[in-house]
Simulated scan of single mutants.
Amino acid sequence: MSRPVVASLDLQALRHNLSVVRRAAPGSRVWSVVKANAYGHGIDRIWSALKETDGFAMLNLEEAILLRERGWKGPVLMLEGFFQAEDLALFDKYRLTTTVHSNWQIKALQNARLHAPLDVYVKVNSGMNRLGFTPQRLHTAWQQLRALPNVGDMTLMSHFADAEKPDGIREAMVQIEQAAEGLGCPRSLSNSAATLWHPEAHFDWVRPGIVLYGASPSGQWQDIANSGLKPVMTLSSEIIGIQNLKPGDTVGYGRLYRATQEQRIGIVACGYADGYPRIAPDNTPVLVDGVRTGTVGRVSMDMLAVDLTPCPQAGIGTPVELWGNEIKIDDVASCCGTVGYELMCALAPRVPVVTV
């Protein structure tokens, strides 16, 4: 029998979440963001569940080629554009839309030999200070690109740093409006948070990522509890050992947890080598046989311990949900001082993945 830890992907939930996005932004087309191997879900496993999207957005050229080879004929947006001028031959062959955020990319497009023009997303830096032309530089860059025979349709793009807050896009929108004055161009500005909470930023294309997978862009599940979004990934395992502690007994490396009374604990086949966070503190939520309880002691490479006080019926082979429909990945991440994005992307290759 194989080790019991497994990640289950609910493809119907993925399709449902895309419909939630469409209801939130009914006047916009949707780029489904599948970067980081579809946020750890596996692009090859899930893309067909999102085939009703208007386009896919990602970073890796290899993943874009995979989509084309699997039969996707719609738009593909490369969110960081091309990394070397030589990449443009493959952008041309596979008909990929490229982001342009730097002067050297304009020069590369000018010098490239393409069979047909490439559609371009011109990125303006509206305060994130990662990629993009400054607002003062945008008009010049736009006109330079517009003059190139190798450039087809052009769209203005930006990315919000703080869209999960009620006024989090206000300053960025001012910069974008000033930068785009007179261009009269299509726009793609909204990430997951802006798609849900800032309809004034929807424009022509929205770019949802984390919400497609059923987690919150703010990192707090309660912020999307009434949105209709459903978790896609469930990480589950089983109890493989039972320990009966006496007062004073300790659990795990470093003896960080010490029992204050007689206590029964279960040992679960899941650890940090599976992608569960090593830094998870005591009482990180876990579901054992349908009962909510918490972890105890330090997470090991292959195992973690859970308190069985609320579930005395649990024994060897009892099912455990680490995150999923009942234990929200955002709640686990919050206990660990991180966000659900990281836990999804950290799912280890050794964990079997099944689609439901």
Rank of each mutant, 00 (worst) to 15 (best):
105 Q>F: 09
107 K>R: 15
108 A>R: 03
112 A>R: 11
115 H>D: 14
117 P>L: 02
118 L>W: 06
119 D>I: 12
120 V>A: 11
120 V>D: 07
124 V>D: 10
125 N>W: 11
125 N>V: 09
128 M>Y: 04
132 G>C: 02
143 Q>L: 09
144 Q>G: 05
147 A>R: 13
153 D>G: 15
154 M>F: 00
154 M>E: 03
155 T>W: 15
155 T>V: 15
158 S>G: 05
158 S>W: 14
163 A>I: 05
165 K>Y: 14
165 K>L: 15
165 K>A: 13
166 P>H: 09
168 G>Q: 00
169 I>T: 12
171 E>H: 14
174 V>M: 15
178 Q>F: 12
178 Q>A: 14
179 A>I: 07
182 G>F: 09
186 P>H: 12
188 S>C: 15
189 L>K: 08
189 L>H: 14
190 S>T: 08
192 S>E: 01
193 A>L: 01
195 T>D: 13
196 L>M: 11
200 E>V: 08
209 G>A: 01
209 G>D: 08
212 L>C: 01
212 L>I: 10
214 G>P: 07
217 P>E: 05
218 S>Q: 07
219 G>A: 08
222 Q>C: 10
224 I>P: 12
224 I>K: 02
225 A>N: 01
232 V>K: 08
232 V>I: 07
234 T>Y: 05
235 L>W: 11
239 I>L: 15
240 I>C: 03
240 I>Y: 08
244 N>T: 09
